[in-house]
Amino acid sequence: MKRWAILLGRVGTTVIAIGLALFLVSLIPPTAINGLSYNWGVAYSNGFSTGLAPDIGYASNAWGTLYWGVLTEPQTLHVNIAANASLNVYILEVSSSTIDDWTNQTYSGSVDFSNVTYLDKFLDLHPSVIGWQGEINNGTIAFEYTPMRIVNISLIVSDHSLEPVGISAYQLLWFSSVAPVSKVQTLSEFAVPIGVAFTLPYLGNLLKTKKKRRGTAKQ
């Protein structure tokens, strides 16, 4: 058998092996690595329940940060929020102080940083920082967010109504995968067919050799 066919075949089988390894890695389920929650309506004092917790209140036309931190690509943030009114929820790929800094630099004089107008202006000018956005209408919202790189994230809520509103509960759960699942799956989907294509000349030659051997044996 020709050596180039053998070499190409072995390269192909190796690419298939790597593709299968990546596929296997993508099947490993994520595990919870961290959690943070406001007690879903129950406040605790010295370990004992003392009744319903107060809502986290937001004045009319205000915005606030529920959480900010750093997230990496194999990590996913699961978010659950319950509110008694209509609220906009955003995951922004910047720290909340970036919005304050922008407001401070853009507007002179005394500024109410919590005013939702400034947040809306910031988002209009920097739409690329919005990682996820949604709305709660007097109920709960649940979503998950996976970044594409190591990134600062801020979980922000904004109230556009004329009434003060409140968040009665929220829960954040961090999950970690062994690898960025979508990226690994895509690579696996490409690697296996490429590997098979590389292996075809080798398999063709192998079949030819076997046929020749059979023919010689019959004679």
């Binding site: 298939i16 092996a17 790597i18 390894a21 595990t31 750093v70 990496t72 194999p74 970690s176 062994v178």
Partner: peptide, 24 residues
């Protein structure tokens, strides 16, 4: 060769603790 390529690939992802590291 294929078996070791498979093991190297799976091992790297499984043993690297990058995903479980909380960055600040």
């Amino acid at each position: 060769f294929e078996l070791f390529a498979f093991l190297f690939c799976v091992g790297t992802f499984v043993f690297a603790n990058f995903g479980s590291t909380m960055f600040y």
